[in-house]
Design a protein around this nucleic acid. Structure first.
Length: 848
RNA sequence: GCCGUGGUGGCGGAACCGGUAGACGCUCGAGACUUAAAAUCUCGUGGGAGUAUAUCCCGUGUGGGUUCGAGUCCCACCCUCGGCACCA
C-alpha cells in the first residue's frame, strides 16, 4: 500500500497557497525569524539537485523554527543580472533580457515544487529596475561618502570575458567563471574602498557564529600583517626605495628587488630594463606564477645602502615581486627566504646567514635545505644587537631600532585590496555616474534613478576596455551635467554582479511594505527615500539564519558584511541591529555524483524534476538530507532514494493501521509505558538534531521510532499481551507525523488531516505546519532498566540488566558483576588491584 | 608551502563529557507469502578461529604515548577534500 504523491502534493500546494499559510506579518510579527538562503543565479537547465540540496536543508530549519512558534520569513529570488547570465545568453544566441524571462519562469516553476515554505509575495530579481534602482542608489552613497573612487590601477583583465575582474574573482591566476588566464592591465576603474573597513571586517570575525572554515578563509583573505616599511637611500640620487618586511633579517639583506610596475623602473631609460618590464607585464598571471620556479630579473644599475651592515646593495627588477604586496619592493635576504635564495643563486648575489635553525647548522648557506625561513624556530647570529635572540621574537626589537633612527616606520599591511566594481559588460546595472569636462564625475541625481539599462541589440563585449554601452543610443549616452547643466556623458561600465547580491537580504522584508501603486498606471511609487522600511528592517534584521554554500566565503559574504557596515555607519540602518548582517551562518557541503563534482562537462548533473515526479518531493527532500551530515555533503545515488520512499510508505501504512485497528481509535489514556518512553526519547533526539542541523541523525531516529511502532502495533491485537494502552499509540503516531512535518511537508499534511478527521476535532483548516513542535520530558524518556557493562582489565566480559536505582548502587552492582560466570573466570587466581565504577553505566575490575 | 576539514564494515554514515564501536539506511544472502513476479514481512550481513544463537582473538589511516579504559586526549607521520599562495 502506497500513496499517490503527485496528487497529494498538488492538493496541498493549492490549499497552502489559498489559505496563505506561508504569509508573514512583516509589520507586526512578534517573534520574527528571518530564515535566508543564498539565492541562485538562474542559467541553462534550471534548478539542479545541488540547488535543491541547499534549499531543502534551509527549509528543514525554517519549518522547524515555525513549529517552535517563530514567525518564519523565508524569501526567494533570482540573482540573474551579471556575467554568468549574459554568457549563457551569448552561448544560446539570445538577448539576456529575453533569456531572463525564460529562465525566471522555469526557475520559479521548479522552486514552487520543492516544498519550501517560501514567502512568494516578497520575491525579487536583481535585473528588475525596481531593484537595481537601489543598487545604483547604493553606488551613489558610496561615492558621496568617498568610498567609491575612480583610480588608475593595475587590475586583472579576463581576455575571454573581455572585462576587468575583482581580485576575489581571480582564482589561481584564472578567471573564476571561464577559467581563462587573466592578465594585468593598467586602467581607470571604479573601486569601493573596502580596505578602509579591513580592521573591522577582520576583528568582527571573532564575534560571529560561522563555520571555522569560512572564518579562516576570510581571515586569510584579509591577511593582516604587522611589519615595517624601511626606506633606503639610493646612492648618487635623491630618490629612495621603500621595502616592506616582517622578518628581522636586515643583517642578511644583500640586495633589493622591485616589481616591474615600480615607479623607479618607469623612470628608467635603460633599454634592457624596459624590455624586461614589457615582457613581464605581458605575461598572464598564470604564466608568471608557473615560471616562478625559474627566477628572472635585471640589474637596474642602482645601489642602496643597508642601514645596519653599511654595505652597498644592488637594486634589481624581477617579476616575482608583486606590485600590490607591501610596497612593491623587497629587501632580499637569500639566507632566510627561499625565493630570495633562488634569485641570489641564479644571479650570483651574496648570501649571509643570520639565523641558526633547530639543526644547529652554522655553515655557509649553499643549498636550499639550509634556508631557515620565518615560522621556524631559531637563534639570531651575525646580527649585532639581535644576536642570541629567538628568531620569532627579534622583530619587535628590530622595528624599535629602525624607528628610533628614523630608517623606517611600523605599518600594517593587508592582503585585501579595494573592490573593483566596474565591468566592461552589458548585462548589469549601469554605474550611475556622469562625466562633465568641467565638473568631472557627478552622480546621477537620486530622483532620476534608476538609470535603466538601454536596449542594445549587439550587446557582446567589445574588448579593448570598451563597454558595450558605448553602442547605446545617443539620447542615453549624452546627458546634461547634473551640476552645471553643460554637455556631459554617462559612464558606460556596469557594476559587478556581487554588488547586486551584497544587499538583497535588506530588500526582501520591505518588498510591498514601502511602496504603493499609482492608481491606473500599474507603476509604483516609493513612500520612503530608502530601499527598505525602517520599522520592518528593525524587526527582521539581522538575518537569523543564513544558509548557503562555502564557495562564497570571500566573495559575497565579505562584500555583504562591508556594505552592511557602511549603511549602518551612515545611519541608513538602525545602530541597534549590530555590526554584522549574518550573526549565524551555516554552510552546507557539496552534493556530488559518483564521487565527482556535478558539472556540465562531466555530464553528471542531476535534475531533481524526474525524481520528484517518480518518488515524490518528500522522498527526495528526505533522501537528500539523509545522505550524510548536511555540512559535509554527499554522493547522490538512486538506490538510496528508493529506500527513503519505502520508509515513507511504512509511515503511511502505520497511520492507516491505527485507524483500522479496533480499540485504538478515540481512546485517549496517556500513560507511562514503553511506547511513551520511546516517544519522549525520539522527540528529544529529533529536536536536538534539528537544532544543530544534523538532519541525517534526526531521520535515523525517526526510522528507529517507526521500526519500534510497527513492532508494537503488531502486538496490539486482541489476545496479545502488551505494555501500553491504545491511546498511547495514537499519541505516538501523531507525534511521528509532527516530527516528520518539517522534512516531508506534503505527506505529513495529508496524514495529519487524516488523523484529525478521524477524531473530528475541527472543521477549520489547521495545517500540520501550524502545530506546536512536540516537547519531551527528560524523566519520562529515561528507561526503567539499564544495561551495566562489566569490564575486566578494560575488556568487555558481561552485561547486566539492572533496575535504574539498583544500577546506581556500587555495592549491588559489583556483587552482581562478580557473580557472572563470564566474569568469574577472569578473576580466578588473580589479585584485584582496582575497581572502577561509573554509576548506572559500567564497572571495570582491574586484576593482575 | 601555509591554513582549515576529514580518514570508522562491501557502501553512505552513527557513537553525549574518555566508558557496550559499527545506530540508521543501502547493498547482498537465506526464508515466508504467491501459480509466478513485484510489493510486503522475517532472519542474517566487520574480519578470523569454532559444529555452535557457546566461547575466544583481531579490529576506527600509520607509529608511539597518557589512562583502569582511547574512534574520542597528547606527540610524530601518511593520505583525502577545501581555501590561500613567488604575500616579502
Amino acid at each position: 500500500m502506497s500513496f499517490d504523491h503527485n496528487k497529494i502534493e498538488a492538493k496541498w500546494r493549492k490549499k497552502w497557497r489559498e489559505s496563505g499559510l506561508y504569509k508573514v506579518d512583516l509589520k507586526g510579527a512578534k517573534k520574527p525569524f528571518y530564515n535566508l538562503m543564498m539565492f541562485p543565479y538562474p542559467s541553462a537547465e534550471g534548478l539542479h539537485v545541488g540547488n535543491m540540496y541547499a534549499f531543502t536543508g534551509a527549509d528543514f530549519y525554517g519549518r522547524f523554527q515555525a513549529m517552535r512558534g517563530q514567525e518564519v520569513f523565508e524569501p526567494i529570488g533570482l540573482d540573474g543580472f551579471g556575467i554568468h547570465s549574459e554568457n549563457y545568453a551569448i552561448k544560446i544566441g539570445a538577448h539576456p533580457s529575453q533569456q531572463a524571462k525564460v529562465s525566471q519562469k522555469r526557475f520559479y516553476d521548479q522552486l514552487s515544487r520543492i516544498g519550501n515554505r517560501f514567502s512568494w509575495e516578497q520575491r525579487l530579481e536583481t535585473y528588475d529596475p525596481e531593484y537595481y534602482k537601489w543598487t545604483q542608489w547604493l553606488f551613489i552613497k558610496m561615492f558621496e561618502k568617498g568610498l567609491a573612487v575612480r583610480k588608475k590601477s593595475m587590475v586583472n583583465w579576463c581576455p575571454s570575458c573581455k572585462t576587468v575582474l575583482a581580485d576575489e574573482q581571480v582564482e589561481g591566476g584564472v578567471c573564476e567563471r571561464c577559467k581563462t588566464p587573466t592578465v594585468r592591465k593598467e586602467t581607470y576603474q571604479w573601486f569601493f574602498k573596502i580596505t578602509d573597513y579591513a580592521d573591522r571586517l577582520l576583528g568582527n570575525i571573532d564575534k560571529i557564529d560561522w563555520p571555522q572554515k569560512i572564518k579562516t578563509a576570510q581571515r586569510n583573505w584579509i591577511g593582516r600583517k604587522e611589519g615595517i616599511n624601511i626606506t633606503y637611500e639610493i646612492k648618487g640620487s635623491k630618490k629612495t626605495v621603500t621595502c616592506f618586511t616582517t622578518t628581522p633579517v636586515n643583517f642578511g639583506a644583500t640586495f633589493i628587488v622591485i616589481a616591474p610596475e615600480h615607479v623607479l623602473v618607469k623612470e628608467s631609460k635603460n633599454k634592457k630594463i624596459q624590455e624586461y618590464v614589457t615582457k613581464a607585464l605581458k605575461k598572464t598571471e598564470q604564466q608568471r606564477q608557473m615560471e616562478g620556479k625559474e627566477k628572472t630579473g635585471v640589474f637596474t644599475g642602482l645601489y642602496a645602502v643597508n642601514h645596519v651592515t653599511k654595505k652597498e646593495i644592488p637594486i634589481w627588477v624581477a617579476d616575482f615581486v608583486l606590485k600590490d604586496v607591501g610596497t612593491g619592493a623587497v629587501q632580499g635576504c637569500p639566507g632566510h627566504d627561499l625565493r630570495d635564495f633562488e634569485f641570489a643563486k641564479k644571479f650570483g648575489l651574496p648570501i649571509t646567514r643570520v639565523v641558526v635553525g633547530p639543526d644547529g647548522d652554522r655553515n655557509e648557506i649553499t643549498r636550499k635545505e639550509q634556508v631557515i625561513q620565518s615560522g621556524t624556530s631559531g637563534k639570531m647570529v651575525n646580527s649585532d644587537f639581535l644576536n642570541g635572540m629567538e628568531f620569532s621574537k627579534a622583530m619587535q626589537k628590530t622595528m624599535d631600532y629602525f624607528e628610533e633612527r628614523g630608517w623606517g616606520e611600523r605599518v600594517i599591511s593587508f592582503h585585501l585590496r579595494d573592490w573593483l566594481i566596474s565591468r566592461q559588460r552589458y548585462w548589469g546595472p549601469p554605474i550611475p555616474m556622469i562625466f562633465c569636462d568641467k565638473c568631472e564625475w557627478q552622480p546621477v541625481p537620486e530622483k532620476d534613478l534608476p538609470v535603466e539599462l538601454p536596449f542594445v541589440k549587439d550587446y557582446q563585449p567589445l574588448g579593448e576596455g570598451k563597454a558595450p554601452l558605448e553602442k547605446a543610443p545617443k539620447e542615453w549616452l549624452e546627458v546634461k551635467c547634473p551640476n552645471c547643466g553643460g554637455k556631459a556623458r554617462r559612464e558606460t561600465d556596469v557594476s559587478d554582479t556581487f554588488l547586486d547580491s551584497s544587499w538583497y537580504f535588506l530588500r526582501y522584508p520591505s518588498i510591498k511594505s514601502n511602496k504603493d501603486s499609482l492608481p491606473g498606471t500599474g507603476k509604483t511609487v516609493l513612500r520612503e527615500k530608502l530601499p527598505w522600511d525602517q520599522e520592518v528592517t528593525r524587526r527582521w534584521l539581522p538575518v537569523n539564519a543564513y544558509i548557503g554554500g562555502a564557495e562564497h566565503a570571500v566573495l559575497h559574504l565579505l562584500y555583504s558584511r562591508f556594505v552592511w557596515m557602511c549603511l549602518r555607519d551612515w545611519g541608513y540602518l538602525p545602530k541597534s541591529l549590530g555590526d554584522e548582517p549574518f550573526p549565524f551562518l551555516y554552510s552546507h557541503g557539496l552534493l556530488i555524483k559518483d564521487g565527482a563534482k556535478m558539472s556540465k562537462s562531466r555530464g553528471n548533473v542531476v535534475i531533481p524534476d524526474e525524481y520528484m515526479e517518480k518518488f515524490g518531493t518528500d522522498a527526495l527532500r528526505m533522501y537528500l538530507m539523509f545522505i550524510g551530515p548536511y555540512d559535509q555533503g554527499g554522493d547522490f545515488q538512486d538506490t538510496g532514494m528508493m529506500g527513503m520512499r519505502k520508509f515513507l510508505d511504512r509511515v503511511w501504512r502505520l497511520v492507516i493501521a491505527i485507524q483500522d485497528t479496533p480499540g485504538v481509535k478515540n481512546s485517549a489514556t496517556p500513560g507511562v509505558s514503553e511506547v511513551g518512553r520511546f516517544r519522549h526519547q525520539t522527540v528529544k533526539r529529533v529536536t536536538q538534531a534539528m537544532e544543530n542541523l544534523r538532519y541525517n541523525v534526526g531521520i535515523a531516529a525517526l526510522m528507529e521510532y517507526v521500526n519500534f511502532l510497527e513492532f508494537h502495533l503488531r502486538l496490539l491485537t486482541p489476545g496479545v499481551k502488551n505494555s501500553s494502552t491504545p491511546g498511547v499509540v495514537v499519541e505516538a503516531v501523531e507525534t511521528l507525523v509532527l516530527l516528520l512535518a518539517p522534512m516531508a511537508p506534503f505527506i505529513s499534511e495529508e496524514m495529519w488531516q487524516m488523523l484529525r478527521k478521524s477524531e473530528a476535532r475541527s472543521t477549520k483548516f489547521e495545517s500540520v505546519h501550524q502545530q506546536a513542535w512536540p516537547t519531551f520530558d527528560e524523566e519520562k524518556a529515561r528507561a526503567d532498566k539499564v544495561e551495566v557493562v562489566v569490564q575486566v582489565n578494560g575488556k568487555l566480559r558481561a552485561r547486566l540488566s539492572l533496575g535504574r536505582d539498583e544500577a546506581q548502587d556500587k555495592e549491588q552492582v559489583f556483587k552482581a558483576a562478580k557473580s557472572e560466570a563470564a566474569v568469574k573466570r577472569y578473576l580466578e587466581n588473580k589479585k584485584p588491584v582496582k575497581e572502577i565504577f561509573v554509576k548506572g553505566k559500567l564497572v571495570n575490575l582491574v586484576v593482575r
